[in-house]
Amino acid sequence: MKNGRFPYARILPVLPSVLVFTAFFAVPLAYFFIISFWRVRAFQLRPDATLAQYEAVFLDYSGPLIFTLGMALAIGLTTTLIAFAFAFFCRFRAYRFGTALIFVTLLALFGGYLTKIYMWKTILGSAGILNSALLAIGLIDNPITALLYNPVAVVITLVHYTLPLAVLPIYGSLKGIDDIPLEAARDLGASRMRIFADIIVPQCRVGILSAFSLSFIFAAGDYVTPLMVGGPSSSMIGLFIQNQFGTRLNSPLGSAMSFVVIGCCVVIILTVAAALFAVTRRRD
């Protein structure tokens, strides 16, 4: 039972967390947003109120931006689809192995970000593990060079990285589904497909959506993966953003690019959410 005796004692302990959130997230992000309207002169940030950076983003970087969003969408959708099927298998079809498989997913979650990218580079490379294995068993005569340094390698690597991240929220919402309504639906004569569409999917929309958002946003904001396995044809926007801080020292432009990407991500996620809810709406 909650008592009404010490109201401040109950509010005070949350303050350090709120302070960290404000000082190292809200304020830096707000400041970072503000400087997207500033200019750089002689390597110094100068307060201003210009939209020039945004103009530059749309004029000079619309190609990479669209490519990035397309890639992120492909990665987000692929990941969500595989994650949903896998989580569904764990919850409804794997019986006693379900928890063990989820535990394996948890292990895969923390393999190390750089490690995973680097492993895909070595697996897919022309002298890499996959090629040498295929050569060794005689399946091919010459190494396949087309595996690495292309958009597909980026998709594979990022799907691999975000998959465990996406399985967990979907599995969480599938686990919350009670077995009894499913049996009741079968008792009432619903087919397996109807049960799936009418009962299971509507109950895990939030899980699906958070899985998609996580993988989509991560893919849209990543630059190490395209740098390592993407090759020249897959220059994603993160690379250009990072460049503004590494070599070009044009943080206003980097900031404008970041917020354009964030804005596009929000729009796309909202669209996907609306579509998901429209498709899975209960029909009478």
Partner: peptide, 8 residues
Amino acid sequence: PPLLLGIA
């Protein structure tokens, strides 16, 4: 995204 957090 961690990149945004990092540069901000």
